[in-house]
Amino acid sequence: MPDLWMPGAEVHDLGDHAPTDQQYPPKAIAHITWDRNATAAAPQDWCTFDSLVSYFTNEGASSAPHIIWDPFSGRIAQLFPANSRSKSVLSPPGSPTRTNRAGQVVIQIEAVFFPYCRVGTQVYAQLTDTPCAGWDRLHAWISSWGVPDTWPMGRPVDFTGHRNESIWESQGGWYAHAHVPLNDHTDPGSWPDFGQTGGGSQPQPNPAPAPDPAPARYQTTINGLQYGYGAQGDQVTEVGQALVARGFGSHYRSGPGPDWTDADTENYADYQASLGYSGTAADGVPGPESLQRLLGTLPGGNSVSLAHVIAAANTDPGAEQGHQTYGSEVTIVQNALCAEGLLDPSNSAWGRGSFGTMTVSAYSAWQQRCNYSGSAADGIPGRDSLQRLGAAHSFTVTD
């Protein structure tokens, strides 16, 4: 299975995962943030990547995409896993499809860009005038999910709408926001070629081969902790010590320690290669899957105590409505059950954070999916079923 989380992306998991509609072919939808209105006569300063990440992870979460892409630096943030819908297009009641879900995947990308943005002294009229840094990595990951290299309604070259419901429902590939039925946005205006590797819209000369490419020097965020060049903290030391214990410490001259250096990156790249990763997936910057395999868990906030959720499942149904025995951990389990389609996130009756009767019933349905029956599918979590839910939805199980 391809990576649910793009290798090298900064992970800011919003939760609230929900399945897509598998009867439609796989799609990617291209957007620009277009957060300011500028003109050739009156350009405006570019709105930064970090400010857009902050917006979509806070007040803008209700319209968040899967991917936020900085075409100037190549930084990429991911907010939803590939197999979940995100929320960047309208899905009005009269739509024949749920537009955010109309595909085996429907991966939505927001390029941090608006026409005539100014970066330093340079003004960029269209997205393809930027360096398009990181596009090759982003395109490769989306292709791994079966999205074909085609624009069924034409590659965007201007800000006009071209919408066709029949094509939308029947053909996989890349779509502009301007192509999505019953939407009114006309972005992105332009988009890089599938074979483009960065540097703007004009063909770039082939550089002289570099015998010793520099290690990757960017950071990623996993469960709120930083990894990659320049990251600092106990989590960096923990990774280095685990690499040495596994026999991947040959690039250290001293350490490991709490400051992530090129040596950490090179050792981690060796470890990724040992797992069968290659290319940008083995550039030495951790992804959630490889990190969990190295450490046996994902450090950070997404962990659940088996004893706590069992206690909640035994206590909350008989307590007063909405009682929360271990609310934060139960919420993690409930978010996963929502992503599995076993709880309806739009129905507040089940009580977020409370392991009440509706959550017990939903967990029983999950146990049945795990091939349990009878008293083994009574809705009270067991270690195996909870670990399988955690493996599918990026939380770890303790106790």
Rank of each mutant, 00 (worst) to 15 (best):
G230T: 06
A307H: 11
Y363A: 06
A392E: 13
Y55P: 00
G230W: 07
T359L: 02
S86A: 15
R155I: 03
A42W: 01
L298V: 02
A362M: 05
A176I: 05
H393N: 14
Q324A: 10
E289K: 13
G318T: 13
F80Y: 15
Q78W: 02
A111F: 03
G356Y: 02
Q241L: 14
H162N: 15
G199Y: 03
G60Y: 07
P209W: 13
Y271D: 05
T150M: 12
G284H: 01
H393Q: 08
E320D: 13
P148D: 12
D316I: 05
T237Q: 12
T99F: 04
T160R: 12
S385E: 15
V105A: 04
Y227W: 09
T396L: 01
W69A: 00
Y175T: 07
P286F: 07
N37C: 02
Q104K: 15
G230D: 07
S254L: 09
R155T: 10
T197L: 10
S364Q: 15
I380F: 00
T99R: 11
V105L: 05
P192C: 07
A313S: 15
D184S: 14
S51V: 11
A125E: 15
H162A: 14
P93T: 10
Q171F: 02
Y124I: 00
H177Q: 12
V244A: 11
F49M: 04
S303D: 09
I332M: 12
L294A: 09
I142G: 01
P188C: 08
V239R: 01
S290G: 12
E289M: 06
A64K: 03
T297L: 06
T325Q: 15
R352K: 14
P215W: 08
W151L: 12
V397M: 04
P345K: 10
D21Y: 00
Y268F: 15
G379W: 08
S86K: 00
R383Y: 10
S361W: 00
P152W: 10
F395Y: 08
G353F: 09
R383W: 05
